[in-house]
Design a binder for these strands. Structure first.
Lengths: 230, 230
DNA sequence: CGGATATTTGACCCTGCTCAACTGGCGTGG
DNA sequence: CCACGCCAGTTGAGCAGGGTCAAATATCCG
């Protein structure tokens, strides 16, 4: 992670958009920008909390590990998303890790400065509350899915979520490059099981995964697989 | 749910404690108090969001259903806890239900008034952010546990969580009355499986469950069961 | 070209869910 | 007072979803 010049224009990220004009100069002084290489961690589980990050360019996975070679991907983050907001709680150590999926750029603020900003900027605090409430809702939904849905339905749901979050590119592929390992960790299953389900989906012309690009051929059938699990 | 007089003294609940003195008169006017019978819902999944609740007395389960006769208990709430904060997100319908575990009393505020309070009271907004960040952390931990822990370890963890949240009474029992059905829904397993594990725990003198009261005989062994699962 | 790493597949087996039977109160009506 | 049904609590048998392991194949890279 290498510090770099000011790539963020102070208007596109979640934070900057909500800042009062008079606050922007202070922000410009405090804010630091970092280039992150693909696969690099910006922080990992157990690191001391020092600040909060805003994705300016690129994408990240936020994950919790288990057993050294097992992990669960909690969520993905892309341009304009926040990472490291868990540091706002009473916990002094990050409970999750954040890893770049591609070369990325992040803005960084020390937690003390960010908290000072929150106490001054009511609108920012209010929007952060809304954001956290939505995150919590998503997280609860994932809990229920992990507890009650079949692996096949969870995998289908994982692809639907990826599609919603990243959208599609000109060729119709989901606009993200992601390893199978990561997809299985996101769906809460194993690499091998993902495979078998993926073959099934391909055979039924629902979805294909070539290289690291995902193409959803039949959104309806995919949704049906999720629904039929009830 | 029956409206009742002002039981809350405006000082004990999460909200009131953080309110500025000059705001308390307005709060006293807006606030409504309700008695809730055991087993009664204060809202259910799919209801339109109208307000936010603070538990004044009693305890609640917050749960998400699946399949009519299956549910997952997301969390419990007791005196001074918030319920219904999910309504602060962009969602217009509650994504969970809240059911009283015992006769309880709640304070209620319309969401619009609460939001107005948030925008005026920076300290309240800040504390709410901290609260939500902690909830999110707990929720992520639960996701990982549901994905990777064995049922036995999850059940052990469920009892540890109950102990932490409710504490113990004079006789050493966990200070809450809870059905086996609810315990299994909290641990993310079935009624029958909970039984078999419970027998095992009793045989090993780790924990007994008589009626609706839980007694943890060996905290260390219980924690070991959770740890050994890694 | 050879070793290391990723992909793909098959065989096996264990956890834990399902279902159904059994128990033991408890209320009700004959 | 007993017989009956009913319900919650309890236990056991069976089975399948999906995780584990290992082998076979492909791909990468120095």
């Amino acid at each position: 992670m290498k510090e770099c010049g000011n790539a963020c224009d102070l208007k596109t990220c979640f934070l900057c958009k909500l800042c009062l004009p008079e606050w922007l100069p202070a922000l410009a002084v405090q804010k630091r920008n970092f280039e992150v290489k693909k696969g690099e961690l910006i922080f990992k589980e157990g690191d001391a909390v020092n600040g909060i990050y805003f994705v300016h360019k690129g994408s990240f996975k936020v994950h919790k590990s288990w057993d050294k070679d097992k992990e669960l991907i909690i969520r993905f983050a892309r341009s304009a998303d926040i990472i490291g907001h868990m540091g706002l709680g009473k916990r002094l150590l990050y409970p999750v890790s954040a890893t770049a999926l591609e070369p990325s750029v992040v803005c960084y603020l020390e937690i003390a400065f960010f908290e000072a900003t929150l106490k001054v900027n009511t609108e920012l605090a209010y929007q952060l509350i809304r954001f956290l409430a939505n995150e919590l809702d998503d997280s609860h939904r994932s809990m229920r899915d992990l507890a009650h849905m079949s692996v096949k339905a969870r995998i289908a749901q994982a692809f639907i979520s990826l599609h919603q979050q990243f959208g599609i590119d000109e060729q119709g592929f989901i606009d993200v490059e992601i390893s199978r390992q990561d997809i299985s960790s996101f769906a809460g299953t194993t690499y091998e099981t993902l495979f078998k389900v993926l073959n099934e989906f391909a055979k039924q012309s629902i979805l294909t995964l070539t290289g690291r690009k995902i193409f959803i051929a039949d959104h309806l059938k995919l949704q049906e697989i999720v629904n039929n699990d009830h």
